[in-house]
């Protein structure tokens, strides 16, 4: 059995899924994100990108080629009711 564990906790993407993405040719953070959804969850890759960069390094792909992916609004998790201005008991 191959060693496996969750890498991206928000989207529940495992080590084996990341490795198979690398095998398929996704060799930067951005490519892996688009291929697997790792880094597309609530935390926007704040946790898993470090781990994915390490996995890429083990496969011979240097971290400097993995520039951080685009950052879009909202950069912090926001509840929809906060965003649209509805009142809610907090």
């Amino acid at each position: 059995m191959k060693e496996d564990y969750v890498v991206c906790r928000c989207e529940e993407i495992t080590l084996q899924e990341i490795k198979s993405a690398i095998k398929q040719g996704a060799i930067t953070l951005d490519e892996i994100k688009k291929y697997t959804r790792a880094g597309m969850g609530l935390c926007q890759g704040r946790i898993c990108s470090t781990i994915i960069i390490e996995i890429l390094k083990e496969h011979g792909y240097l971290p400097q080629y993995s520039a951080p992916p685009h950052s879009r609004i909202p950069v912090r998790p926001v509840k929809i009711w906060e965003y649209i201005g509805e009142d809610q008991d907090v």
């Binding site: 909202p74 912090r76 926001v78 509840k79 965003y83 201005g85 809610q88």
Partner: peptide, 20 residues
């Protein structure tokens, strides 16, 4: 006050105590 974004006219989008 969470700053959730900035546009190119220097406008900051903020969640100020749960209000945008």
């Amino acid at each position: 006050n969470r700053v959730i974004g900035i546009d190119d006219h220097n406008t900051l989008a903020i969640i100020d105590n749960h209000k945008y």
